[in-house]
Design a protein around this nucleic acid. Structure first.
Lengths: 342, 342
DNA sequence: TTGAAAGCGCTAACAG
DNA sequence: CTGTTAGCGCTTTCAA
């Protein structure tokens, strides 16, 4: 590996001092320099193929131009778009990101925050799932710039971006209700995950404003956001209330599992029972019955988080709103119909 | 943000020299030290909450314990498992990774390699798609440790990991042929992508060994690995050879598109025409007709690449094989049947 | 407008 | 076994 060109090399080549070279190459230069000198330095820098050593620079300036991105699991389809949204704004600004997967494990989360801090990240964008991860809060309180996605951290000035979960659930509930459904069950997500809790609360609220007895609602909680638990919970719902005509599911995978269960017991969706999902994951429209669901803006959420982070890092932290709520969109497809004996 | 503890802080606290502290905290210590001193240092280090400054260390040692991971697009479902495979081995070893998306653009690729080098990555794991990306080859030749996935770089000592594409295509071809298909068309991927070319070559080879006239094969190339192009190419195949009874597709999305096109023209799969895919992407088994496809080992491919990289970085580069071919698995589902008038 | 010098925090060669 | 010293490459104050 050919030795890398350093400022010193350019200095000797042009016959000026390294500090002069440093100044000449600084894009937003403070000190005035002779145009001629600057030109000569720039020219030789290119000629020698100079590339600044970010490590050295980081050590000196205490800025790494790197941000940590914490997500539960990149393998979960909803996160890659978020990541790309983040990079779409951060990369042009010269930032790189280190992505870590927390697997929603508390201990791991803590270790990862430490790893990121050891590497001197300038900030962390944290996509939350667990409702309470003390680690990231502590880091934020210690002064590390933090922006969270999906999770409101009470009592701090940590900016958060969330999708309008409540509006999404309300839209789905409203659709179901308008079609005539009165026995609407909720297949809830894990209660310890923010989205699980939020959507459950929203479901109850939607029922309440329609004068339904919140105590009597059929609500079954899945342990995981996956098809297996969707099947299991759907079965449970049918046992608890055989009169259920529609199930509002906390996400698409649960809905898929539920529909699959119905198939095994001879119920058809939407003829016998209506189902709605949440997320609008890729390829969902190819799986019959095409699921009616709520689309959330993943890419945009990432982009907004990144923009906020960039603002903070450039010293304009006051300008960023603590709360950003992104609108969601109800996607009507084929999994909802009027109830059988309506 | 409370000032970070440095070696110096520990040194003054324990009354020894910083270098002694550095040595005491070095896990694989070369120089012998008094147990007592080591203990005292370790103890105060913990007490003060010391965390080594990797930046400073990197500047000194010229190792960042960071590797660059280049992929076309994290949003493409086949890459997240690869990334997790990589991290599953690298993270426990103390490496972090910077993931960049090339979008399969040549210019971007070059810029990204530079960015990674500026950040002093110890090596790059490069998941290729473009058949010829000169940039990464140059980097490798310049001495940067490189391991590639999906792409054999001729004439270098760059280790590469590939899935046994040829065996996968042969397995699919064989299945079709055994069912009695004699008019097997190939819906090929873009020829400038390694997988597109490899699978096309394998298709021709499979036809050849069965004595079929390679010149007469119906082969239509898609411009993109997506459903839209799958539909378009499927239409073209039917025009070119209406007698086609089976289509071997270069990947699942093309197959999905093809089947969708057949539906619009009133052909059923598999009754009227058989189709096979490649990759076995997530949720494929929920999309009817459940596609018969070839499963590749994504996670494992990433893990192997990472292991090779780790070996190289720890000075055992001679031990890593230049070529690693991972076995694939034919997954038989419902999209293949015996031909209509067989 | 430029040079000199110090130092970010750590490691490693060399003494002792 | 431990201290001294130098320096990785860069930025930034202070002088000139």
């Amino acid at each position: 590996m050919n030795k890398r060109i350093t400022l010193k090399d350019i200095a000797v080549a042009t016959g000026v001092h390294v500090s002069t070279v440093s100044r000449a190459l600084d894009p937003k230069r403070e000190t005035p320099l002779t145009d001629d000198v600057v030109l000569r330095i720039r020219e030789t820098a290119d000629r020698l193929g100079y590339r600044p050593n970010r490590i050295a620079s980081s050590l000196r300036t205490q800025k790494t131009m790197t941000i940590g991105v914490m997500i539960p699991d990149i393998t979960n389809m909803i996160f890659p778009p978020i990541v790309r949204g983040i990079e779409s704004v951060l990369e042009p600004l010269g930032y790189a990101s280190i992505i870590v997967n927390t697997d929603s494990q508390r201990g791991r989360e803590q270790r990862l925050v430490e790893i990121l801090q050891d590497r001197g990240v300038d900030g962390i964008i944290h996509t939350a799932v667990l409702l309470d991860d003390p680690t990231i809060v502590k880091a934020a309180e210690a002064g590390l710039p933090v922006v969270t996605l999906n999770r409101k951290i009470e009592g701090t000035r940590v900016p958060y971006i969330i999708n309008d979960e409540a509006a999404g659930i309300e839209a789905a509930f409203s659709l179901l209700h308008d079609k005539g459904h009165r026995h609407i069950a909720h297949l809830a997500g894990p209660r310890n995950l923010s989205t699980g809790q939020l959507r459950l609360d929203a479901f109850r609220a939607s029922a309440a404003i329609r004068g339904m007895n919140v105590e009597n609602l059929t609500i079954v909680e899945a342990a995981q956001f996956d098809e297996v638990d969707g099947r299991r919970a759907a079965e449970e719902i049918l046992i608890r209330d055989p009169g259920t005509t529609a199930i509002l599911c906390a996400n698409d995978r649960l809905a898929l599992g539920a529909i699959d269960h119905f198939r095994t017991v001879g119920l058809r969706c939407p003829e016998d029972i209506s189902v709605t999902g949440f997320n609008d994951m890729p390829f969902l429209n190819m799986i019959p019955p095409r699921l009616t669901t709520v689309r959330i803006q993943q890419f945009e959420a990432g982009a907004v988080a990144a923009r906020h982070m960039a603002s903070i890092l450039s010293g304009h932290g006051e300008d960023v709103p603590i709360e950003t709520i992104l609108p969601v969109l109800l996607i009507e497809r084929d999994s909802v119909a009027v109830p059988r004996q309506a």
